[in-house]
Design a protein around this nucleic acid. Structure first.
Length: 542
RNA sequence: GCGCCCAUAGCUCAGCCGGAUAGAGCAUCUGCCUUCUAAGCAGAGGGUCCCAGGUUCGAGUCCUGGUGGGCGUGCCA
């Protein structure tokens, strides 16, 4: 509809002797319903160029506007020079009915956007995911779904940091806990990770190998620790319905010599230098405040070097777009990495970085304290057990990514109207119930029919709301702003509940009942499609 | 100190390229179930959009400078 109006407005302006770029014609839904369904401010933006009063331009535009009564019921000039368009009810009804035919595809864009790689979670395999990780898990999973819906071929990737010093620390901790499980006193100096899960790993090794591994090399314990953590992390992700296509192992970069290759290139281009036994990258040449170490004096690379090699790897795989998601606490890492990749002559313009702010947890009005040092950690598994998968998936994406998120555990547990995810699911279940009732009454529904006999204002408003779905997905995907989806679905649920309240669905009037049942099905379809993007379930009963 | 993010109703937050009278949920108050799910609907009250300048027909939105908070600023990731 927007495109149609844009084209007609452009034609009208051209006929009136005004030249304008079609793309610069803005159309948006007004706040007040009495201002119509779409409005343009084009007369006001052209006022200066044309040296005319905005209302005069608007008047000329409307005079030359060729209105198709099938689609547009009214064109009005209002306020300082807005032009308001009101859709014809027949158009709204026909479009809304098509939702039933498009069904599970309603809202999808044709596959043409290209290939995109989304890397997220990428938590170190040194322990279970904690509750705070949940935000990134859900943001990334939802974004991937959304990108798929809007025509992207998505590769879901997890960068598995199974190299580096943190793995040595894990290995030492595992060895201490293993020895402890055999009855030795642990050397607290070597216990880097205090969580109980490492004791579990230690006990597991005892069960499998007994005392046989007393003198095993650190590599053995590293392997055991990594294996356990990987299994644990993927199990948690699996619970949330999150599946990665690729787990990219950091150690592969070492094995394949890619770390050395990158280091060599930096040297050749004089982008690195030796100082105090370490190798530094001249990031100041890229505009940062100071140079950064990429190889420590111990000979081990810092995270930056493998990250650069990894990103080069991803760039070379030839995606149309590469998206990295990470939390604000890792904010400092990426500019150097991108700059490093670029400095070696690789394209970086198609790399988008999404930074999300941190999460705090509140329960019964009390903030939930977490301390890694004391091992007092609230794990993502615990959160899932406490509030359920759907609440986790929904709560973590209901706010914009660059504001802090306060996760109210009590609210998420609440099975009432206070809980926004229940409100949404209730609408779906309510429709399912109506459809069951209708089936008992002898209604059988196909995808044929029309909404031509639905004229109640609640019905028309509901249909209009359903028609917004593709646009909401498109806008959300374009801006990587997934929280709009949840808000939108809430509006759909509200419009449906209002309709339900105003219009009895199953009545003596069979034809009216049929149409209203079809409208219910269309609402249910939009909710289902939206839930599919968000990764939450669509209950038939509640 | 410097970098990024944030500041909108009592609370948690929306507000897509700058648009018309700034919105939602919760909380508070008032109505609505013999009829398809009241986990619902309707209504009321509640605002210095942090402050000060600037840009223009028009600023919650853009710019500058402050104030307050979060996260960084490691030879951790």
């Amino acid at each position: 509809m927007k495109e149609y109006l844009r084209e007609r407005i452009h034609a009208a302006l051209t006929a009136a002797g005004v030249s304008v770029e079609p793309a610069s014609i803005q159309l948006e839904a007004p706040n007040q319903p009495e201002h119509g369904d779409l409005a343009t401010n084009v007369a006001m933006t052209l006022a200066k160029q044309e040296k005319k009063n905005p209302r005069q331009i608007a008047t000329e535009l409307v005079e030359h506007f060729q209105r198709d009564d099938e689609k547009i019921a009214a064109v009005e000039i209002a306020g300082p020079g807005f032009i308001n368009f009101r859709f014809a009810d027949g158009y709204v009804k026909d479009e809304a009915f098509r939702i039933l035919k498009e069904a599970g595809n309603y809202g999808k864009t044709a596959d043409s956007s290209g290939r995109v790689n989304v890397e997220w979670v990428s938590a170190n395999p040194t322990g279970p995911l904690h509750a705070g990780h949940g935000r990134q898990v859900c943001i990334g999973a939802t974004l991937c779904n959304l990108l798929e819906w809007t025509g992207w071929d998505v590769t879901r990737e997890y960068y598995f940091n199974n190299a580096g010093n943190q793995m040595n620390n894990l290995a030492e901790t595992v060895r201490e806990r293993y020895l402890e499980a055999l009855g030795d006193a642990p050397d607290e100096e070597k216990v880097h990770y205090v969580g109980d899960y490492v004791k579990e790993i230690g006990r597991g090794i005892v069960e499998e190998h007994g005392e046989a591994k007393r003198d095993a090399a650190l590599d053995f314990f590293r392997g055991e620790g990594e294996k356990w953590c990987f299994a644990h992390i993927t199990r948690t992700l699996d619970k949330l319905g999150v599946k990665h296509d690729v787990f990219f192992n950091e150690d592969a970069l070492y094995k394949e010599g890619k770390i050395d290759a990158v280091l060599q290139q930096f040297k050749e281009k004089d982008l690195s230098y030796e100082q105090e036994g370490a190798t530094w990258l001249r990031t100041t040449a890229f505009g940062t405040d100071k140079d950064r170490v990429i190889v420590k004096s111990t000979g081990e690379p810092t995270y930056r070097l493998p990250d650069i090699a990894y990103h080069i790897e991803k760039v070379q795989r030839g995606y149309d777009k590469i998206i990295d998601i990470f939390g604000a606490d890792h904010m400092a890492a990426y500019p150097d990495v991108i700059a490093g990749v670029k400095a070696l002559g690789h394209e970086t313009g198609h790399i988008d970085v999404i930074i999300h702010q941190m999460v705090s947890f509140v329960n019964e009005g009390e903030s939930v304290k977490m301390s890694k040092r004391s091992g007092n950690v609230y794990y993502l598994n615990d959160l899932i057990d406490d509030v359920g998968v759907d609440a986790v998936r929904y709560f973590f994406i209901m706010r914009g990514v660059n504001t802090h998120l306060e996760f109210d555990i009590k609210l998420a547990q609440e099975q009432s109207e206070k809980n926004p995810v229940y409100y949404l699911q209730y609408a779906h279940a309510r429709i399912a119930s109506i459809l069951r009732f209708a089936a008992d009454e002898g209604f059988s529904l196909t995808d044929e029919g029309s909404f031509s006999n639905l004229d109640h204002q609640s019905e028309i408003e509901l249909m209009k709301k359903l028609l917004d779905f593709p646009g909401v997905l498109e806008m959300s995907a374009r801006n990587y702003e997934i929280h709009h989806i949840g808000n939108y679905l809430n509006e759909v649920a509200t419009a449906f509940h209002k309709f339900y309240h105003d219009c009895r669905v199953v009545t003596e009037d069979k034809e009216l009942s049929r149409s209203r049942l079809q409208l219910c099905r269309a609402v249910q379809q939009v909710l289902r499609n939206g839930f599919a993007v968000l990764g939450i379930s669509a209950p038939e009963k509640m």
